[in-house]
């Protein structure tokens, strides 16, 4: 059983990482110093919930908590909300929709401001998930910002990814086409009592058929719980089934590292005297912008005419 003390220790360990007071290892040590539980052989299942704003993600998370608790599984939720790019402040309101679980020691809910990180997660989300895992929670649910763009970062964190959309969100399905098929394990059309729900589900099924992976498309009404038991069933099957996401997560991580490395190399190249010379010629109007880009790209060994 997870007690209130674990809540406090976990909460403070997360803050320590979030605020850059220590790194993950330090936080883990701190956790142990506070008397947090040792990590057993088991590991938490991490469920990512992503999708556009207004799709009802928090309400769905509330229903999932209810379902997992009915099976006696303990649940930690990390809910990410956007920070203001101007003031860096944030209002974090996701827990309002989960408040009926507030008194349950088997449920831990933590809001995180995105702190201007892209990709739908906060910089410390990944560490927070690992700490919640260490704290002994059976399931960790990560709810992404949901500001509209495709939030691929969740792949690196979650074992199973649920992409939530709603009918008549205009370009909702369009946004999904733009890339979420790559990461979704389950599609959920929430607010299925609204007009257009079936059409959205059919659209999604067509899309899935074009892809390589078999992704279930479910319909829910999170508000009254309709369809949630089917979602739980699929989630539990995924939890107990083979870990397909491990491969995907590794692929994603390799791509991410390659991308980071490419950026690092590009920046380093731009610092060389050769690059400085090109930029000087641009400044002196001896080169057009496009010519300058081509010349610099050549130094990187990349393709020239990419623009």
């Amino acid at each position: 059983m997870i007690g209130h003390r674990v809540h406090r220790d976990l909460a403070r360990a997360i803050s320590a990482v979030e605020n850059g007071i220590t790194d993950y290892r330090g936080a883990l040590a701190q956790f142990a110093a506070f008397g947090g539980p040792p990590r057993g052989s088991r590991r938490a299942d991490v469920i990512g919930i992503t999708g556009p704003p207004g799709a009802g993600k928090s309400t769905l998370v509330d229903r999932l908590i209810e379902g997992f608790r009915a099976d006696d599984a303990t649940v930690a939720v990390i809910a990410v909300d956007p920070s203001s790019p101007f003031t860096h402040g944030a209002v974090l309101g996701d827990r309002v929709r989960m408040q009926r679980h507030a008194g349950d020691p088997g449920v831990f809910i933590r809001s995180m401001a995105s702190r201007s990180a892209g990709g739908g997660l906060a910089p410390a989300t990944r560490d927070a998930v690992r700490l919640a895992d260490e704290a002994g929670f059976d399931i960790v649910i990560v709810e992404t910002v949901g500001v509209g763009q495709v939030e691929l970062e969740i792949v690196a964190v979650a074992d199973v990814i649920v992409v939530v959309t709603v009918p008549a969100l205009g370009d909702g399905v369009q946004a999904i086409k733009a890339g979420l098929t790559e990461i979704a394990d389950i599609f959920v059309v929430n607010m299925a009592d609204r007009p257009g729900a079936n059409a959205s589900a059919v659209d999604l099924k067509h899309m899935v058929r074009e892809g390589k992976r078999d992704i279930p498309v479910l319909q829910t009404i999170a508000q009254d719980g309709t369809g949630v038991s089917e979602l739980l069933e699929v989630l539990n099957a995924k939890r107990n089934g083979e870990d397909t996401n491990a491969v995907r997560a590794v692929r994603f991580e390799v791509v991410r590292r390659a991308r980071d490395e490419a950026v690092r190399r590009a920046l380093a190249t731009l610092d060389t005297p050769d690059a400085a010379a090109v930029l000087d010629r641009l400044r002196d109007h001896e080169l057009t912008r496009n010519d300058a880009i081509d010349a610099l790209a050549l130094m990187l060994g990349g393709p020239a005419h990419a623009h």
């Binding site: 928090s58 309400t59 209002v91 309101g93 309002v96 929709r97």
Partner: peptide, 10 residues
């Protein structure tokens, strides 16, 4: 009937 939970706006 269910119980209403608001989505607060600021």
């Amino acid at each position: 009937f269910g119980t209403y939970v608001e989505t607060p706006v600021f």
